[in-house]
Each structure stands twice: as C-alpha cells, then as structure tokens.
Amino acid sequence: MSLPPIHRVVTGHDAAGKAIVASDGALPTVIELAAIPGTVFHEVWSTAATPAPADNGADPTLGALVLPPPANGTRMRFVDIPPDTDDFLANGAARMHDAFTQAGDAAASTVAADSPHPLMHRTESVDYGVVIEGEMTLVLDDSQVLLKPGSVVIQRGTNHAWANRSDRPCRMLFVLVDATYDPAIAAALALPSSIWKKT
C-alpha cells in the first residue's frame, strides 16, 4: 500500500510586493532509503538562519538528502515508514550505517548489540513528529509509546527509534529545529564538546 504524494505550495512576492504562488505541485526531492525499502523521505522545506529570511530564494530541498536541520535552521519533511519485518528486526542493524549515510548523517545511528530497535539514532535537534496516517511506536532507551493519527512527539535530542508494528505504512510529519545540548546532558551522554558546543 503506497501513500499519496505530497502537494506543496510555496508563496513569494513579485517586484511590487504582491503575494504570489512561486510554485505549486509535487515535491522535487522524494527519496527511498535503499537499505530500508519502503522508508521514503519527502523533503518539504528548510531554513538556514534564525530569523529565517522571508525572501524569494531558491528551493532549499534540491540536492542531497540531509537528516538534521542546518545550523541555526529548520527542516520539514514527511517520512513514510513501512511495517517492521522479521528480517529487518533480526538483520537491520547491519544496514544502519548505509541507511544513515544515504540520509546524510552516518553518525546519527546509535544502534548497538543491546539496542531495543535497529533504527536507534540521535540528532542534536528538537524535533516535532506528528503521526498523519497509520500507527507508530516511539522506542526510547527505557520505554515505548504507541502513537496514532494526531499523536505529537516532542523529541529533544534523545536516543530513539520509530517502530512500525502494524500491517501498513505509517506517514509522519517532522519539523526539525537546530538545537544545542545542555552541558549536563552532553556530559551524561559522554559527547565530545565539539559536538554540543556550537559557535
């Protein structure tokens, strides 16, 4: 079962300052992860500064897939996540380096021999994740939460995975906001200061 394509409308201004439709149609960047068939990233938009420029700039989603948001920026995407298979749960950990490399952040994967799920990962960002269609289980180091349409997860740089234990794909909307770890949390995670001390 495939989910419908995303329809994106981008606005802008003409030379007189009148509001116009700059683009209207399908997303130009939709990428399926080769290492996790059925996992599809639908790149909607990103910003690379705070405050973000309200301009007529070029489409920031063109180019290679990048998992985290830009420094001082945001990233918006939909992700379609297929049901977990027995093969993926048993052998998926060996494919995570390839999966996260294709997603533009090989270092994000935190999977280890004792991880509760092959997709365990972490980014230094605050992420808003909304279940649009289907069901998803949020997996953390010590707990799990079942999510249904309308569920919202505020992911504050924590180690986590998305486990689809249903029989159909789940679509989630994510807005990722660049963040910096609190020094006490960074120390507890034993992260090098070069990761969490952003300049």
Rank of each mutant, 00 (worst) to 15 (best):
R8C: 09
G12M: 10
G12H: 07
A15C: 10
A15Y: 07
A16R: 06
G17Y: 06
K18V: 06
A19L: 12
I20Y: 13
I20M: 15
V21P: 02
V21T: 14
V21I: 15
A22W: 00
A22G: 04
D24V: 15
A26F: 04
A26S: 14
V30Q: 09
V30I: 12
E32V: 04
E32W: 02
E32I: 10
A34L: 11
A35I: 02
A35F: 08
I36P: 00
V40H: 02
T47W: 02
T47Y: 04
A48D: 11
P53V: 01
D55E: 10
P60T: 05
L62I: 14
L62P: 04
G63K: 05
G63H: 06
L67R: 12
P70Y: 00
P70E: 01
N72I: 00
G73C: 07
G73V: 01
F78R: 07
F78M: 11
V79R: 04
D80M: 04
P82W: 01
P82C: 00
D84Q: 03
D86H: 11
D86V: 14
D87F: 02
D87P: 07
R95D: 03
M96S: 08
M96D: 04
M96L: 12
H97V: 08
A99C: 11
F100M: 05
F100V: 05
T101H: 10
T101N: 14
Q102I: 13
Q102A: 14
A103H: 13
G104A: 12
D105I: 05
D105N: 15
A106S: 10
A107Y: 12
A108S: 15
A108Q: 09
A108L: 10
V111H: 11
V111K: 05
L119T: 07
H121F: 05
H121K: 06
T123H: 11
E124W: 00
V126R: 07
D127V: 14
Y128F: 15
Y128Q: 15
G129H: 07
V130F: 15
V130N: 09
V130L: 15
V131H: 04
V131E: 06
E133T: 14
G134F: 12
M136D: 04
T137F: 12
V139A: 00
L140H: 08
D142T: 10
D142W: 03
P149D: 15
G150F: 05
S151Q: 07
V152L: 15
Q155G: 01
Q155I: 01
R156V: 06
G157S: 05
T158E: 09
N159S: 06
N159F: 08
H160D: 02
W162I: 05
W162K: 05
W162L: 03
A163W: 01
R165F: 14
P169V: 12
R171S: 13
F174Q: 09
F174R: 03
V175A: 10
L176G: 07
V177H: 08
D178C: 04
D178S: 10
T180I: 00
Y181A: 00
Y181S: 00
P183A: 02
A184L: 06
A184R: 02
A184S: 06
I185S: 07
I185H: 09
A187G: 08
A188S: 09
S193Y: 00
S193C: 01
I195S: 03
I195D: 05
